[in-house]
């Protein structure tokens, strides 16, 4: 039982650590934005995303 509590502690530590890293880099898997190709401001190629019906 001690081991499971220890492992859970590690798990929570990892989660909190992950959150801290995500927080520092303002990272979120729920964002819509994707990194696009580098280029001039115009003429951007769009990938994915919802469109009208």
């Amino acid at each position: 039982m001690r081991t499971s509590i220890f492992l859970y502690g590690l798990w929570c530590l990892a989660i909190v650590g992950l959150f801290m890293v995500a927080n520092t880099y303002a990272w979120s898997p729920f964002a819509d934005g994707r990194q696009g190709p580098r280029g001039s401001g115009g003429g951007v190629i769009f990938v994915g995303g919802p469109n009208h019906k």
Binding site: R34, Q35, G36, V44, F46, G49, P50, H52
Partner: peptide
């Protein structure tokens, strides 16, 4: 009606771009 909106944020310094597409309908 609908409006398709494609957003691109472009960093002036290095032209790195970030895109997202949305629609209002």
């Amino acid at each position: 009606g609908w409006v398709d909106l494609d957003y691109t944020l472009v960093d002036r310094k290095n032209q790195a771009s970030y895109t997202a597409s949305k629609a209002a309908e």
